[in-house]
Amino acid sequence: MELLIFYPLAGFSLMLALGVVMNKSPIGSALCLIGMMLGLAGIFALQQAHFIAILQVIIYAGAIMVLFMFVIMLLNLKGTDTKWRARERNTLLTVLTTFLALGVLYKVITVIFEFNLDSPAKVPDTFGTAAVIGETLFTDFVLPFEVASILLLAAMVGAVVLAKTKLD
């Protein structure tokens, strides 16, 4: 039953991920990326990570992609830019990314074989709910939580410094 939902979702996500790379227009790529994020959220929900699934939608599909969208709309890149075309024939980049992709694929395959797929792990009913995640986050991981706030502060300062600097 779960596999029946998993494969269409995974296929959908993969197709959109390919769409991100293959798409000629930047805004089309961004839309594909949003769709892929939503597919990913579906997979998370399938793995019982309910809170993470919702965060995936809110933060990645809802917030960060809005930022991407803004950049695309602000710059208004044309669909077929000459510079954009020139990048297509960068042999060094192609070789490098191919090696990287093959490495990742190798790692993924070895990891899959390490696990015993026949007996999936049993998780409690409350697994992945907001309360359980909050419990660990606010007791065991207090320090990372507070450090995250400082990180956010740094990002905020950085954004304002970049955006509000007068060029002249």
């Binding site: 839309l31 939503l38 809170f51 919702i54 939608v57 809110i58 917030a63 709910t129 907001a130 309360a131």
Partner: peptide
């Protein structure tokens, strides 16, 4: 379980 967050998640998609 994350009902209210679901509402916000969906609302954030509507922006597009």
């Amino acid at each position: 379980d994350v009902g209210l967050l679901f509402v916000f998640a969906i609302a954030s998609i509507a922006t597009y």
